[in-house]
């Protein structure tokens, strides 16, 4: 656990991964995850976001929530870069199973296989599931 840690500006930097597996709007998981991610940015940790299963739907372009009286948070994924959160991983198999391609997503991501995603999870100090 400790061998991956670096000392930076006097603090310990850990590898955090937020795993998103739920579609947005139907449940609160996606929004909760995004808010925790934004708050975690203040602690300057090594943060990765994983989008797996229905979680890939969180990144859809063309979201319009006007008709459901909920605030859209889809544009907020674009703000992540400004929060220095630049490691966004989308699972290839999950995207394909839903007929989606990278062009359907609102932000630039790295598309990786399920096996690669498993390796990434294994490298983390902390994994948080949403």
């Amino acid at each position: 656990m400790t061998d991956e840690m670096d000392m930076e500006e006097g603090g310990v930097v850990k590898k955090f991964m937020f795993v998103n597996r739920k579609a947005p709007y139907g449940t609160i998981y996606a929004l909760e995850s995004l808010e925790v991610v934004l708050i975690s940015a203040a602690f300057e940790q090594d943060v990765s976001l994983a989008f797996v299963d229905d979680g890939v739907y969180q990144l859809m372009k063309n979201v319009n929530t006007d008709g459901i009286e909920m605030k859209s948070f889809s544009k907020t994924y674009r703000a992540l870069e400004g929060y220095d959160i630049e490691k966004l991983y989308v699972e290839k198999e999950s995207m394909e199973a839903r007929g989606l391609t990278e062009d359907d997503l609102i932000v630039d991501v790295q598309v990786i296989s399920q096996s690669e995603m498993g390796d990434l999870m294994n490298e983390q100090d902390v994994v948080l599931s949403f």
Binding site: L38, A79, G82
Partner: peptide, 15 residues
């Protein structure tokens, strides 16, 4: 308008 959130201070400063 662009991101649908109010930025944290560190992010505001940088932007």
């Amino acid at each position: 308008n662009e991101y649908q959130i109010a930025p944290a201070i560190r992010v505001l400063t940088k932007a």
